[in-house]
Nucleic acid binder design. Structure first.
Lengths: 259, 259
DNA sequence: ACAAGGTTAT
DNA sequence: ATAACCTTGT
């Protein structure tokens, strides 16, 4: 059986909010190292990979490997019933057909119990090859979100252009064109507010803004986002959730002039 | 004639907002003790009872008993034209076909006058028997509202289960089941923030969440809500408006397995 | 920070 | 017609 208690339950809610618009149903693979979910998005264009380390829970217990197929819309609805500071406990029997969620207010005055029906999901578990990326950009997650939102006014696609001292995001459409350039090390007033670029070779790739906007739903989980790019390889957009785990999104670049 | 001046006019607006979604037209019965409205909701399932004491107005004058039939949607629209801190004066002639509303800003710098057409409403004035309830629960109004909203994502009905040391609200539906238990005396950090249970005998009754959510529109009027329950008797949901009066809602329990 | 209402975009 | 967003009040 699985029994995992997360003192900052809100993290779990934010994780599900960060992926539920991309993936309607997903398998949570639970083992002694933690809880992982990997799924293609509904239109099989992007890949989502969530991982929550066992050490992010207290306590964490998972005797046997378990796969919990969950409708993420329903999961999200249940998590909306949680108080903001609640402690969340996830439990599942080895052969049950439900997963149980318990929310407890910090003072213990309120206890909420929910049971979510499990669903069968046949998911191909794609291997993700380790890649040595040409360019790795870390920037404030909120800035990335803003850029995607702003450029989506202009067009469907964004060209991400990473060179030595900056990342340039540009889009164009009917009404005009625009670009936003973030310079390396800009606005390093506080830690984790700057932009750093790790470059092996300059890259210029085009991506769907709609997907990037969806990825940036994870902004609530992390101060920084990391974009890893290589020519002809899916972009990796990663949000690190403190010591607890991460959400990673993969998105293939648009090729040629398919707009 | 009626002439009733309410220094905190916003209370009147909140009262109407708290009932206008349930009742489209209602009779305001005015006499020297105050202003009362009693009406079945549009689908004749719930009963709404609003009372504003004469002492809640200053001054209050009502020479002869008057019944003012009002379309509450229109009333609400007019009240939306009021400033948040305005003083409201309600006036009606004995044989008029309108009611007049005056809004004055505290500093007297702005005076607004509205006239609302009266409508004829034939309303059966149901007697409400005094009941000795099996269980009386007082809890924070906002918490009750939150519980109704949360559980409504799961299903149409809520089972309210009152026992010695807690109230359990539970619901179930397609995607799963859930329950929220509030313990007696929990979180009594401040006055009027705790939950108290007055129990003669344990009760378990089922109600429509849609109606309870509608009742909880009165949350703006009071810190606490009181739920009074007895087997096979309508639930009473009461919001006390300071010294001014109250809004009471009555809702029959669902019986058997009608879901 | 939450909930309600209105407005707008799909 | 519905959903998402934005704004306002609690």
């Amino acid at each position: 059986m699985l029994e995992a208690r997360m003192p900052q339950g809100a993290i779990l809610r934010k994780c599900i909010d960060a992926i539920k618009d991309l993936v309607t149903d997903g398998n949570f693979d639970c083992n002694d190292s933690g809880i992982a979910l990997q799924a293609m998005d509904n239109s099989h264009v992007a890949l989502v990979n969530l991982f929550l380390r066992a050490s992010g829970f207290d306590p964490y217990r998972c005797d046997r490997n378990l796969t919990l197929g969950v409708n993420l819309g329903g999961f999200s609805k249940v998590l909306k019933c949680m108080g903001n500071d609640d402690v969340v406990t996830v439990k599942a029997e080895d052969d049950g057909d439900t997963v149980s969620l318990t929310f407890e207010s910090k003072d213990g005055g309120r206890v909420s119990e929910f049971e979510l029906k499990l669903v069968d999901i046949d998911s191909e578990h794609l291997g993700i090859p380790d890649t040595n990326y040409d360019a790795i950009v870390s920037m404030p997650a909120s800035e990335f979100q803003r850029i995607c939102r702003d450029l989506s006014v202009l067009g469907e696609s964004v060209i991400i252009d990473v060179s030595k001292d900056g990342v340039k995001f540009s889009a164009s459409g009917e009404s005009g064109t625009g670009s936003i350039t973030v310079k390396q090390g800009a606005s390093v007033d506080k830690e984790s507010e700057g932009t750093t670029i790790n470059l092996n070779s300059a890259v210029q790739l085009t991506f769907s803004l709609k997907y990037l906007q969806n990825f940036s739903k994870a902004t609530a989980l992390a101060d920084q986002v990391t974009l890893s790019l290589s020519a002809d390889v899916p972009l990796l957009v990663e949000y690190t959730i403190g010591e607890v785990g991460y959400v990673r999104y993969y998105l293939a670049p648009k090729i040629g002039d398919e707009n």
